[in-house]
Structure formats: C-alpha cells, structure tokens
Amino acid sequence: MTYMRGTLIRNTTATRINHWITGACFVLLMLSGLSMFDPVTFFLSGLFGGGQSTRAIHPWIGLVLVLSYCGLIVQFWRDNLPSRDDWAWMKAFGRVLVNEEEGVPELARFNAGQKFVFWSMTLLIPVLFATGIVIWDVYFSPYTTIETQRIAVLTHAAAASAAILVWITHVYAALWVKGSMRGMTQGYVTPGWAWRHHRKWLRRLVAAGSRGPTPRSGGRARGP
C-alpha cells in the first residue's frame, strides 16, 4: 500500500484486513441472527438462501468471527488499556457530542468511547460464542440439558442485542468523525486529524520519529 505522502498510518494493512474480516462476519451474523429473532426480520433469511441455510451457516460464521476477533484483541489491547485521560474525556463528553474541542483532553491512540467498544466486544463475543455452542443444535444438543439451553438462548439473544447496540455506536462514530473511515479503509489519517482527535498519539509519533500506527513503528512523520 502506498500511503499519501505526509500522512500518518493509523492501521497497517494486516490490521485492516483483520478488521474487515471481523466486520463482515459481524454484519452477516447480525443479519442471519436477526432473521431468527423476530418475525419482522425473518425475511433477512432470504439473503442466506432461506431459513434452513441461515440456521446452518450462522454458527460457522460465528466461529470465523471469534478467530478473527482474537487477532484484533492481540493488535489493539495495549492501546485500549484504561488511562487517566479516559475519565477526563468522559467528563467532557457533552462537548465531544457537540463537536466542540475546547476542554477536551489530549488523547493517545484511543478515546474512552473507542475503548468502550473494544472491551464490550471483547466481553460479548466470547459470551456469544459460548452460548452459541450450547444452542448449536446439530452438533452440541446432546451435551447439555434443555434448561441449560434455555438459559443459553436467552443469554445469546441478550448479548447479541447488546453487541448490535455497541456496533451501531461504533459505525456511527466512524461516520460522524470525518477521516476515521479512511483510517480503516486506506489506513492513513492526516496529521490534522491526529492533532484534532488524538493529539497525544501524534506527539508520541513525532517524538519517536514514527509514521505510525505506534511510536515503535518505523518511518518518519514528516511532510513532503
């Protein structure tokens, strides 16, 4: 990938491929799962070739999602560790919402909202996986009692709903904060974007002479 000159690398090619495999799996799981959730969304099963095939394919996509998300955990966990700035950012959240930058603290690679998305999914995806296995009737129904399966299906539906809410927040934030989307499609952001949203991250990159995504990565953050 050739990045625009004078830009910063927000996500490496490997990270982006990993992210979009995860995203594709999640969207497919959401559509196939919702089709089994309520009559009004049953028509979505048509996208997967009907009810039987939707039911059959959903857990397999889930398996891919889990593997793929593990990759994201490995790549992102360090930058998502809580820090003092998270609290300050949350207190300034009212300003963040109205696109006002005054009084919002300088931030490292991720803000508390992004960390919330990361940790929520890190919790919910394993829950979905564990409960999903229990209700994967074809292969696993003999190993649990019906009562356990009842708990599992309710928990699966609850965790899925929570994950979908988190996903809506995640997608909206990416559309709202201009320039973020390119950070995950083409992988780069402009220095101004970094200054505006992740100033500490920018300062660290500049201090380390790195082009990103982390101060340890090579390249120099220099203009043309």
Partner: peptide, 8 residues
C-alpha cells in the same frame, strides 16, 4: 428450519 427452539 431445524433450529431446535421448539425443544426449548
């Protein structure tokens, strides 16, 4: 569709 929900 064979989901097994009736069993539950």
């Amino acid at each position: 569709i064979g989901c097994g929900y009736c069993v539950k």
